[in-house]
Write a protein that binds this DNA or RNA. Sequence first.
RNA 1: GCCGGUGUAGCUCAGUGGUAGAGCAGCUGUUUCGUAAACAGCAGGCCGAGGGUUCGAAUCCCCCCGCCGGCUCCA
Length: 613
Amino acid sequence: MLRAPRALEGREMADQETQPPREDQVHDDETPFAALPAEERLFRMRHSAAHVLAEAVLEMFPEAKYAIGPPIEHGFYYDFDLPQPLVPDDLEKLEARMRQSVKADLPIHGEQISKGRAREVFANQPYKLELIDDIEDDTVGYFRHGEFQDLCRGGHTDSTGQIGAFKLTHSAGAYWRGDEHKPMLQRIYGALYPTQEDLDAYLQSVEEAQRRDHRRLGRELDLFHLDPISPGSPFFHPKGATLYNGLVEYVRELYPRYGYDEVITPLIFNTDIFRTSGHYDLFPDMYKMMTGDDVEVGVKPMNCPGHCVLFDSTLYSYRDLPIRFAEFTRLHRNERSGVLHGLTRVRSFSQDDSHIFCTPEQLDEEMARVFEMVREVYRDLALGEVEVRIATRPERFVGNPEDWDHAEELLKELVSKAGWSYEIAEGEGAFYAPKVEFHFRDAIGRSWQLGTVQIDMAMATRFGLRYIGSDGEEHTPVMIHRAILGSLERFLGVYIEHTEGRFPLWLAPVQAVVVPIADRHIEYAQSVQRELRQRGLRVEVDASGERMGAKIRKAQLQKVPYMLVVGDREAEAGAVALRDRSGDDLGAVPVFQVGDRMVDERDSRTSQAPIDA
RNA sequence: GCCGGUGUAGCUCAGUGGUAGAGCAGCUGUUUCGUAAACAGCAGGCCGAGGGUUCGAAUCCCCCCGCCGGCUCCA
């Protein structure tokens, strides 16, 4: 029941940087634009740009229906119902038309008008009429510039000449009001910054981010590939598997210290188990199949039901608890085709998953221990900025409110204690439990949930789990669901982008390449390789006929941590000329010392600052 | 799943109705070289799959599939 790895909603993410206008500013169009704080100015520029875009669209398609157009992180968008699909050429034309408005520097007027009046003005605009109906006040905001008019709560520049530097970037489909049962509109996105320099810098940063894209690095570094024969199911190549297994090993090594026991449960179950857990009907995405015996079986999408069965196979005493089952086996979820994305949204994955069964009295301490482990892991992996969300009780929930309140308070306290600030995701908890979610961003700023911790008071009851308490009576255990890396696939995707493929030595698929200067040095190179391999290091020799410079370049592009150059001098001295991937020449070092250095670096799991730039 | 885009050699891409191209990678040969690309040659493609239009289709049409960008979903 670990919550699936997920991205934050686009809108939610988009709104983070650009603040919506605060109440006191909504109608405050008296203040001259130039006197506003920079953040507010940018918000207004983006907002007004959306109006200018709508103006251009309405001119190009007079029969267009326009919906909403807010400012967002990096720019703005506007949604339209258009008679025909937009083509890239249209965006250029629209952009040109927008620049005319900017050049004309038309004043933007705003006022409050009655709903009745608004209904007349927007009589041919069904989306606007729907918005008017949903506004609770008696009056609505009305903004216009030139021939263009819009229903709008305000927050604009004084004139169209002030909207800054922008570029229409792309168009995409978007459901009206984000509801997939409602019509799909065409959304036009634009990027906008105060100056051309800012805009160029942003556009360039997007291009740079694309070079870090894990799908690209996965190919360039020969880590994995995806094949149409099984969409959403990565094939990990030897180097990718080394990384993957390195992470598993790392987590596995922590388990004895934190008291976890690793288990292995089936991949395929009679689907009765998912009816018991309550997920069967909620899981349209589960892989199900019928056997010849008319028995329906399914591939497991999560481990918790299996762990419940495992727990139930032994009658435990309170003295045995907490029981901590950890499992890495593969899970499958039939994710909808349109959502698949490299390694970050897949159909086949495994988690560093665990379910902890404890007594209610043990809950607080056990949770503290879980957070300690989370903190240790994120610190070791130097993952960068984490965004922590606490998802609270939803409208439909099970259990009693006091338990919920306690669990929520406990989560807040422990998250704070661990040194994280968090935001509350009101009502976004699972029906059975509040959750803590740990989110990290990918190269282009999309946010992905990696770890999650959940306190569950419901599942154990559904499975009839019990333990014998000190009073000799049967009691229902509390269950904690937790994954720290979360889906290993998704973690790797984010981690590849974060490190730009420059993995710390302990994870690097190839830890050093020996570069013989000429063919006569190959034999010595191989002896260096043997010596280092003896010490468990992953070392390759580049025995190709290339020149040294080319070999170094190749190793550099592969982001191999160390290059060991060997020529006559080194062979003579039993040394190597050591170079690291930052390009620093560390001089001649005896082979055994290189081995010491690498073993130290590996065993201390040093994470070099992954991204300096 | 929905909207739009896209699919040509292992990779990045050119080729818009008339004999499938380049660079990189690969292979072979020559070169044996001191810290980010030696030189030459060779090979490599059912142009995503299927159907249609046409004397003729990578190119036009239909329909699938994958991928990309959003939207929705995400135990």
